[in-house]
Structures are given as structure tokens and as C-alpha cells.
Computed example of a mutant assay.
Amino acid sequence: MSLKPAFLRTLALSLALGLGTAAASAETIKVGVTPGPHAQILEAAKAVAAKQGLDIQIVEFSDYVVPNTALDAGEIQANSFQHQPYLDNQVADRKFKLVSVATTVNYPMGVYSKKYKSMDELPSGASLAIPNDPTNGGRVLLLLQDKGIIKLRDGVGFKPSVADITTNPKKLKIVEIDAAQLPRSLPDVDAAGINTNYAKEAGLDPVKDPILREDPKGPYVNVIAVREQDKDKPWVAILVKSYQSPEVKKFIDDTFKGSVLASW
């Protein structure tokens, strides 16, 4: 039996309207990340979110300051690149109205060297580079204290500075450098404390190469941040569920083999 042209036109119009409605129901958000593991993991989460009607556009930033500035300004809807102490510091210092809505992964920080195979080999007066932001620089100082290499004054919390060092038996010369530039600066210093995402991007192995490494558990689990006004929006729940999915955890385990650890 043949279909009449008028019916075919009606059917075609109905299908077109149906497709238009489906397209309109898909929500698009921009999520800021730093290059390397954060971007790779979000790519995996993006595929999961797409099945739930959420289109994630990934925006890469080359430093640790702009992603929060862009989020607070509404240029992006979320970011995934920082741990809670860093976010807390940014909120306090810059009055951003940002909150974390989920934990993501942990990147145990390491101290690397092109010249020495252990911290014991570092000579007196050796140069050690650390990130120049208070949270990540302080993170290296706390690691050094935890391993008995320096001592810090009591009550410094998560943001000690070089001025808080009270005991430095090796007379280490602490050099503060932008976190993203630390891998490039590694040949020019005796050692450097480098965030895992930048270490991996530079071809370093965050499991095998550090001469000193953080314990994997601690306060430095990374988070997804959004603006306070957005925290209860439906897309936030989809983003979090997609990120903390079995598919993404498997991707992390298979891809990073212990250098990046899922928090869920």
C-alpha cells in the first residue's frame, strides 16, 4: 500500500520537530581543566555525560589562576583542576563565590631530580624549586617536613611559606617558580616539587621517578567546582554522576596505573 504525499509531508514534519526537541533538551556546559590527566579524564566523563543529555565542552587553561577567574565570571560553568585547600585559598583571597560539589582524583605530589637518585644524595646548599602559589608550594614544604627534611613552625596549617621553616639541616635553597614551569626548570635546579599533571605532561613517571612522594591519602583530593548559584542545578548532578562513574574509574586505573587515584 502506498502512502499519500500529504501524509509523508506530515510524517517528515513530525520527525523534524521531534529531532529538534531532542536537540533542544540537550544542555551544553563549559568545563575548565588544565592539560594532561585532568583533560583526559574529563574526556572520558564527557562520553558518559552525553548519554544523559549533557554536552560537555572542555576548555583547557595553562595555569592555576585563570580557571577560577573564568568560572566566577560565568565564562565557564565548572572546573576540574584543583584540590580543596587551593580552592579555599582562592575563595578567601579573591572573594570568589565558588563551591566544590564532588571529589575527583588525587595526584600524589613528588619531588623530582635529574641529578640525584634520593633526597639523601642532595648536597648541603642544594637548590629545590617549589610552586610559587601558597597552597602547592606549602604542600611541598609539608611533604619535606613529613619526611624529616625540614621543620616548620607550629600552626602553619596547609599553607606554610618558606619564612615558616625553622630547621633546615641541609641548608636547602628554596626557589619559588610558577607551577607550570617547574618541569622545564628541573635541569637548572638540584630538585623540584612538581604537581603530577605537569610531571606527566613533561614525560616524567609520577610513580617511578620521584625521589620523594606524598602518601596517596590526605587533604589534597581534587574537586569539581561550580558557582554557588549553580550548585543545585540538574546539570551539576549529571556532571558529578558521569565523572564518578565506573567507566571513568576504569579509565583512570587503566590509563594512569597508580599515578592518579580515583577518590570514589
Rank of each mutant, 00 (worst) to 15 (best):
R153P: 09
I174W: 03
R153N: 12
K159V: 13
D178R: 13
P183Q: 05
V156W: 02
P183D: 03
K159T: 15
K171R: 11
D178W: 09
R153E: 12
N168R: 06
K159W: 11
R153H: 08
Q181W: 08
D178P: 13
A163L: 14
V175N: 05
I177Q: 06
P183T: 04
P169R: 06
F158T: 14
S161H: 07
Q181Y: 09
A180M: 06
R184S: 14
R153G: 14
A179S: 11
V162T: 13
P160R: 04
I165W: 00
F158P: 10
T167M: 13
G157D: 07
T166E: 06
V156P: 01
E176M: 08
K171S: 06
P183G: 02
T167Q: 15
D154K: 10
T167P: 07
D164N: 13
A180W: 02
Q181A: 12
Q181V: 10
A180L: 08
Q181N: 13
L172C: 06
K170G: 04
I174Q: 00
D154H: 12
N168T: 06
A180Q: 04
T167N: 14
Q181R: 15
R184M: 11
R184K: 12
L172R: 00
P160D: 03
K173R: 11
D154A: 14
Q181S: 15
L182G: 01
V175D: 14
L172N: 01
L172I: 08
Q181M: 11
K159F: 10
P160Y: 02
P183H: 05
V156H: 03
A180R: 01
D164E: 04
D178K: 15
L182M: 10
L182Q: 00
P160C: 06
G155D: 11
D164A: 04
V156R: 05
N168I: 05
A163R: 15
P183R: 01
I177C: 09
N168K: 14
K159Q: 12
D164M: 02
F158G: 11
K173S: 07
K171P: 08
P160Q: 04
I165G: 00
S161L: 11
R153K: 15
S161C: 09
A163S: 14
L172Q: 00
I174H: 01
D164W: 02
I174G: 00
P183I: 01
L182H: 02
K173Q: 10
P160L: 04
A179M: 06
K170T: 00
A163T: 13
G155S: 15
S161V: 10
A163E: 13
D178T: 13
R184F: 08
T167L: 09
T166K: 10
Q181L: 09
A163N: 10
R184L: 13
V175E: 05
T166I: 10
R153Q: 12
A179D: 00
F158C: 07
A179T: 02
G157P: 09
T166S: 12
S161W: 06
T167S: 14
V175Q: 05
E176V: 05
D164H: 03
A180T: 09
V162R: 04
K159R: 10
D164F: 02
R153M: 08
A163V: 12
F158V: 14
L172G: 01
D178Y: 12
P183S: 09
K171T: 07
V175P: 02
F158M: 13
N168E: 10
I177V: 14
T167C: 09
K171Q: 14
Q181E: 13
P169V: 05
